[in-house]
Amino acid sequence: MNRVVLTGGLILTLLSLATLILKIMRRRSGLPYRELGARIHSWWVMAGLFLALILSGRAGAVGLFALVSYLAVKEYFTMIPIRRVDRRIIFWAYLAIPLQYWWAYEGWYGMFIIWIPVYLFLLLPFRQILTGQTRGFLESTGKVQWGMMLFVFSVSHLAFLYGLPEVQGHSGVEMLLYLVVLTELNDIYQYLFGKSLGRRPIAPAISPGKTREGFLGALAATTLTAAALRYLTPFSVPQALAAGAVIATAGFVGDLVVSMIKRDVGIKDSGDLIPGHGGILDRIDSLTYTAPLFFHGVYYLFY
């Protein structure tokens, strides 16, 4: 627990530093830097909420992730085109969220891991049969399932990670913090390296802002940070470096996958819930890939 508090202090120090730099930039240039200011302010709120709730105990942490999943998937369902009858399957999809998080809270791994990809995925087509609307069946079932996969199933791995029993003196909370901090730092590294060195776009059709320099710079920085934060985990140095590289790469892919969804439906930001960041989808996009991959790596190695 002390290591969690220490890392939390580290995050808040970093944020204070960012706020200080912003103040200096504002004074020097006389520009308001409104967007950046909003971004940093939102980071304070998010980091504060996250740290407070993971320190508050299991119920608080699991509740937070359940709420994040719900808000994210609601943004997703709002932005995709649907048929009127799809309201019915979407309703059932929503009901699956509290149960998924209940299994995570209980630590019932068998149920947690199949609840969405087996039971819900079989239930939704059944509910479609009852509507009797054949046209668009495959498309709308797929859309709802994919949203549940990314924003509920994937994200719920954070909640299960939280509850993992101690291994070599390291609790699930520490590993959760490790994963989330590295994923979010990787996003920030990409932004910083992209802004300063970015030249060659890496996926111009999907996300013109992403550059090779940004990706590679973040990959290096995240891998090193992963080694530095190793004290939160039971990892050896090579394991920590590998975890960092996986998180950097997977985070990048997750980000692009969500961009792909937004491109497909023709919108830029998924919402305005988080000032300076966009919607909640824009903030957790990387986590949808890093959370399950990191979790299953840890689960395979230590449990």
Binding site: Y70, R87, R88, I90, F91, Y94
Partner: peptide, 18 residues
């Protein structure tokens, strides 16, 4: 916008949409 998804005419089930 969005209320037509959340609670359209002739439906009693309110489904969450923004």
């Amino acid at each position: 916008k969005g209320t037509d998804r959340a609670l359209p005419k002739d439906e009693a089930l309110w489904v969450p949409f923004i």
